[in-house]
Amino acid sequence: SKDTIRINGIDIDVKDLHEEWKRLVEEALKRGDEELAIELLERALKE
């Protein structure tokens, strides 16, 4: 798994994120759902 995830052309540092969150965000991006990916990231970062 990578340490960054690219959303809207912005590389976001996710190395401190739990693997499960990372996977969910990557799944959302694979489906092209950037809005969901951002929402998941925000939730993950609050934890």
Rank of each mutant, 00 (worst) to 15 (best):
S1P: 12
S1V: 12
S1M: 13
S1A: 12
S1N: 15
S1L: 15
S1R: 08
S1G: 13
S1D: 12
S1Y: 07
S1E: 11
S1T: 13
S1K: 11
K2R: 13
K2T: 12
K2F: 12
K2L: 13
K2S: 13
K2G: 14
K2N: 14
K2M: 14
D3H: 10
D3F: 00
D3S: 11
D3C: 06
D3G: 08
T4W: 04
T4G: 05
T4R: 10
I5G: 02
I5M: 06
I5H: 04
I5Y: 01
I5W: 01
I5S: 02
I5E: 02
R6P: 03
R6C: 08
R6F: 06
R6I: 07
R6L: 09
R6E: 04
I7P: 02
I7D: 01
I7C: 03
I7V: 10
N8P: 02
N8V: 04
N8L: 08
N8F: 03
N8D: 07
N8G: 14
N8I: 04
N8K: 14
G9M: 06
G9H: 05
G9A: 04
G9S: 05
G9P: 02
G9N: 07
G9R: 03
I10S: 06
I10H: 11
I10Q: 11
I10A: 09
I10T: 09
I10W: 05
I10M: 12
D11H: 09
D11M: 09
D11G: 04
D11S: 08
I12W: 15
I12Y: 15
I12K: 04
I12R: 09
I12H: 14
I12D: 01
I12F: 15
D13I: 08
D13M: 11
D13W: 10
D13P: 08
D13G: 05
V14Q: 03
V14H: 03
V14G: 03
V14F: 10
V14T: 06
K15I: 07
K15D: 07
D16M: 13
D16V: 08
D16C: 15
D16K: 10
L17V: 10
L17C: 05
L17H: 01
L17W: 08
H18L: 13
H18F: 06
H18E: 14
H18I: 10
H18Q: 09
H18C: 14
E19R: 02
E19N: 05
E20Y: 14
E20C: 03
E20M: 10
E20I: 08
E20V: 05
E20F: 13
E20S: 10
W21R: 12
W21G: 11
W21T: 15
W21N: 14
K22P: 07
K22A: 09
K22T: 14
K22H: 10
K22E: 08
K22Q: 13
K22G: 12
K22M: 12
R23A: 11
R23D: 13
R23F: 07
R23C: 07
R23G: 12
R23W: 06
R23M: 10
R23Q: 15
R23H: 10
L24M: 11
L24W: 06
L24P: 01
L24E: 06
L24G: 02
L24N: 02
L24C: 07
V25Q: 00
V25W: 05
V25R: 00
V25E: 00
V25D: 00
V25H: 00
V25S: 00
V25N: 00
E26K: 11
E26R: 10
E26T: 10
E27R: 03
E27Q: 09
E27N: 05
E27C: 08
E27T: 03
E27L: 06
E27A: 10
E27M: 06
E27G: 04
A28H: 02
A28K: 00
A28C: 05
A28M: 05
A28R: 00
A28F: 04
A28I: 03
A28N: 00
A28V: 03
A28Q: 01
A28W: 02
L29W: 05
L29D: 00
L29A: 04
L29E: 00
L29C: 03
K30S: 15
K30L: 11
K30V: 12
K30H: 12
K30N: 11
R31D: 08
R31E: 10
R31M: 11
R31A: 14
R31C: 09
G32M: 04
G32R: 02
G32F: 05
G32V: 01
G32D: 04
G32C: 05
D33T: 02
D33Y: 06
D33R: 04
D33G: 04
D33S: 05
D33A: 05
D33F: 07
D33P: 01
E34H: 15
E34M: 14
E34Y: 15
E34W: 14
E34N: 15
E34P: 12
E35T: 14
E35Q: 15
E35F: 15
E35N: 15
E35M: 14
E35S: 13
E35V: 15
E35K: 15
E35R: 14
E35L: 14
E35Y: 12
L36A: 12
L36R: 09
L36I: 05
L36Q: 09
L36S: 07
L36E: 06
L36D: 04
L36G: 12
A37Y: 02
A37Q: 00
A37S: 01
A37R: 00
I38L: 14
I38V: 11
I38Q: 14
I38G: 10
I38M: 13
I38S: 12
E39G: 08
E39P: 00
E39D: 06
E39Y: 04
L40A: 01
L40P: 00
L40F: 06
L40M: 09
L40W: 04
L41C: 03
L41S: 01
L41M: 08
L41G: 01
L41V: 09
E42A: 07
E42W: 03
E42Q: 10
E42V: 07
E42Y: 05
E42S: 06
E42P: 00
R43Q: 13
R43I: 09
R43G: 04
R43V: 06
R43K: 12
R43S: 07
R43D: 04
R43M: 12
R43N: 06
R43H: 08
A44E: 01
A44G: 14
A44W: 11
A44T: 01
A44Y: 11
A44D: 00
A44V: 04
A44L: 09
A44H: 06
L45S: 10
L45I: 10
L45T: 08
L45P: 04
L45W: 06
L45V: 12
L45H: 11
L45G: 07
K46F: 03
K46L: 13
K46M: 09
K46G: 09
K46Q: 11
K46Y: 03
K46I: 07
K46E: 06
E47S: 08
E47N: 08
E47P: 07
